[in-house]
């Protein structure tokens, strides 16, 4: 495991240990994650100004490279890049080049010819952003906006920001993640981030069919029952359930899932009285969460959306800074 951490770290960080790509939480330390959260905090204030722009990425071209369509995530990345004064190009590749049979590496060669500085990548294959980070010209930053079932690190970090705002920190926190862990890139990144930031316990609540084999190795415990599983919990993260799960014989029906694992007022009472409720969205009311809970006083779901822009601004500016510092050093080395 240590060799893996070391190499994931090597790919994401420059020689000075600064972020240059943001692909996964795996291999990043508490200091770096805290710096991302602190930087995001400073950008929240920017969003409250009348003129919501800072010039950190002025002159940079950011390409939103979405091989899987997503309006919400793409919009927050676009907004974040624009608030950093970057030029933004949105490419919905799912409907263009690759459907004509072009390979991913050929698509990349073409885009690089446009002298882009940063790719924000979403792809249905786990590891696609790693592949891109290994194949692009040095100096181009890659930000993972969700790859397969692997990672969604900006989503996890905006969730961490939300938790820190409401709970003050992570020491002693018990966090429950409920639902379809197996298919969730969000859950994998959250489990890693919570462990790095020092949460006391990450508890997964789901039926066996929605849990990966050997999931405990990620640093979490498993509960099958919602009521006993929510005992002593400070933060409840509900995951979205896709309809396809019924067809794959992973679950009998939405109704049965809601009955056993859906979060309603009655089940919420088993968690700590000040427990907060989170959801990466978009929510399925009546499938994983009751409207009264989603819209209730314990829900922080809309805070998550606001924080999403600040986190993406933080990660983009830090990665660009890391690339520039590396370029400076490489130029010095050659001179």
């Amino acid at each position: 495991m240590t060799t893996t951490d070391a190499s994931a770290r090597a790919l994401q960080l420059n020689d000075q240990g600064q972020l240059r790509h943001f692909l996964t939480i795996d291999g990043l330390d508490r200091e770096l994650l805290t710096r991302i959260l602190d930087t995001a905090d400073s950008f929240i204030e920017v969003g409250e100004r009348r003129i919501k722009k800072v010039p950190l990425l002025r002159g940079c071209t950011v390409v939103n490279l979405f091989f899987e369509s997503s309006t919400r995530t793409r919009s927050t990345f676009e907004l974040a890049a624009k608030r950093l004064s970057a030029d933004v190009l949105n490419l919905d590749i799912s409907t263009s080049a690759t459907s004509k049979g072009e390979s991913l590496s050929d698509t990349l060669l073409n885009l690089e010819a446009m002298a882009s500085d940063m790719f924000v990548v979403r792809h249905s294959r786990s590891g696609a952003p790693h592949f891109i980070a290994q194949s692009v010209t040095p100096g181009v930053a890659i930000i993972n906006a969700g790859d397969g079932r692997h990672a969604h690190p900006t989503q996890a970090m905006l969730d961490m920001l939300t938790i820190r705002q409401h709970k003050g920190g992570f020491e002693g926190l018990k966090v429950a993640i409920v639902g379809d862990i197996l298919h969730s890139r969000v859950a994998r990144s959250q489990i890693q981030a919570l462990n790095v930031l020092g949460a006391e316990e990450v508890r997964l609540i789901a039926p066996s069919t929605l849990l990966p084999t050997d999931v405990e190795s990620l640093g979490c415990t498993v509960a099958y029952d919602m009521r006993s599983g929510l005992k002593d919990i400070d933060v409840i993260i509900m995951l979205r359930l896709q309809r396809e799960r019924m067809e794959g014989a992973l679950l009998p029906s939405e109704r049965e899932f809601y009955k056993v694992y859906g979060l309603n007022t009655e089940k919420l009472a088993y968690a700590k009285p000040d427990a907060i409720v989170m959801h990466p969205g978009p929510i399925n009311r009546g499938v994983e969460i009751e409207s009264a809970v989603a819209d209730g006083p314990r829900s922080v779901i809309l805070n998550q959306v606001t924080n999403g822009i600040a986190i993406r601004m933080a990660v983009m500016s830090m990665a660009m800074g890391g690339q520039r510092a590396q370029r400076g050093q490489d130029a010095e080395g050659q001179a």
Binding site: S126, A151, P212, T213, D214, V215
Partner: peptide, 10 residues
Amino acid sequence: DGLVTARLGL
């Protein structure tokens, strides 16, 4: 199907 698929979502 084991440790690495759990971590990398393969």
